[in-house]
Simulated scan of single mutants.
Amino acid sequence: MRADRIGRRPLLITFGVGATLGTVPLTTALGHVSTFDGALLLMSVGIVIIVGYTAISGVVKTEMFPAHVRALGVALPYAIANALFGGSAEYVALWFKDAGMKSGFHWYVTTYSAVSLVV
């Protein structure tokens, strides 16, 4: 596993920095791309950034909690964050669009990426 050689912390920091600095440029560029190859390249860059989190998230979460509370310790924060941010993402995006600030959603995602980096 690559995280064993690189380390979990550097991968999480790389994800946080990449998501914070890359969200606005990638989503803006994706909105202006007109070819399949261009879209594929931009999406691939985004996926490479996200891999820094998804590749190790299970291990990190497992190590955070002792075995007797692990299910609750992982599931409860996940459910709350998913309900607050994942469940509301479509509504937030549509609110920004209706307000005439489409790029506001990109900054919303960037803000929470920066929060994850700090945490």
Rank of each mutant, 00 (worst) to 15 (best):
Y108D: 02
P77H: 02
V51R: 01
P66K: 13
G22M: 09
R5Y: 01
R70L: 11
T111L: 13
G7T: 13
R5F: 00
S88Q: 04
H68S: 05
A89W: 01
R70F: 12
V60S: 05
S113A: 14
F85P: 01
P25L: 09
A79H: 12
P10Y: 02
V119D: 00
I49R: 10
L30N: 07
F96Q: 01
Y91D: 07
Y108G: 02
D37K: 14
A3W: 00
T27G: 00
D37A: 15
G46C: 07
G38S: 11
V119M: 13
G52L: 03
P10Q: 03
T27N: 10
T62E: 01
A81V: 05
T28D: 13
G38W: 12
L40E: 05
A29G: 04
N82F: 04
A75I: 02
R8S: 09
V33N: 11
Y108T: 04
G18Y: 02
V48P: 07
T111D: 02
T28W: 14
H32C: 03
L41P: 01
I80F: 03
V69I: 10
L30A: 10
W107D: 05
G31H: 13
L84D: 04
G7D: 07
S34N: 14
Y78D: 07
V17Q: 02
A55V: 14
S116L: 10
A39Y: 10
F15N: 09
L72N: 07
G46N: 11
R8A: 06
F96V: 01
L41C: 08
A99V: 04
G52Y: 00
L117G: 03
Y112Q: 11
G87F: 08
G52S: 08
R5N: 05
S44T: 15
E63M: 09
L42N: 08
W95S: 15
A79T: 14
Y78R: 13
G86N: 07
G46K: 08
W95P: 06
T110Q: 12
H106A: 15
T111A: 11
T62D: 03
A55L: 15
V69K: 08
Y91L: 15
A114K: 00
L12R: 10
W107C: 02
A99D: 04
L26G: 10
T54N: 08
V115Y: 07
T35F: 04
L117P: 06
V33A: 13
L26T: 14
K97G: 00
A67H: 06
N82G: 04
G104L: 01
L72Q: 10
L72P: 02
H106T: 09
I13E: 01
A39D: 13
Y108K: 03
G73A: 04
